[in-house]
C-alpha cells in the first residue's frame, strides 16, 4: 500500500520510499523517514497533492511521489 491509497484520517507508518536523490533528501529533511508514523489530513481534488501530518507539522506531498512512498496501517 502507498501513501496515495490512504484516505483522510488514516494513520500509517512509512516503510520505504523510491525516489530520486533530491526528493529523497527532502523527504528525510521533513521527517518522512522509514518508521515514521504519519496521518493523512487531506487530499486535493483532481489528483492534487496529499497533506500529511508528521508530528506537529503538515507536509504536502505530490501525488506522484505519494504513490512511491510505501506504508502500512
Amino acid at each position: 500500500m502507498t501513501l496515495l491509497d490512504t484516505r483522510p484520517g488514516d494513520e500509517v507508518t512509512i516503510d520505504t520510499a523510491r525516489a530520486g536523490r533530491g526528493a529523497m533528501r527532502r523527504l528525510w529533511d521533513l521527517g518522512l523517514l522509514p518508521g515514521t508514523k504519519v496521518k493523512t489530513v487531506a487530499a486535493h481534488p483532481f489528483r492534487g497533492p496529499i497533506l500529511v501530518r508528521v508530528g506537529e507539522c503538515t507536509v504536502a506531498v505530490g501525488r506522484k511521489l505519494a504513490s512511491r512512498i510505501y506504508v502500512t496501517k
Binding site: L27, L30, L65
Partner: peptide, 10 residues
C-alpha cells in the same frame, strides 16, 4: 522536468 512536490506547510 518532473514535478515532485514535497513541502512543509507552516
Amino acid at each position: 522536468a518532473d514535478s515532485e512536490l514535497v513541502m512543509e506547510i507552516p
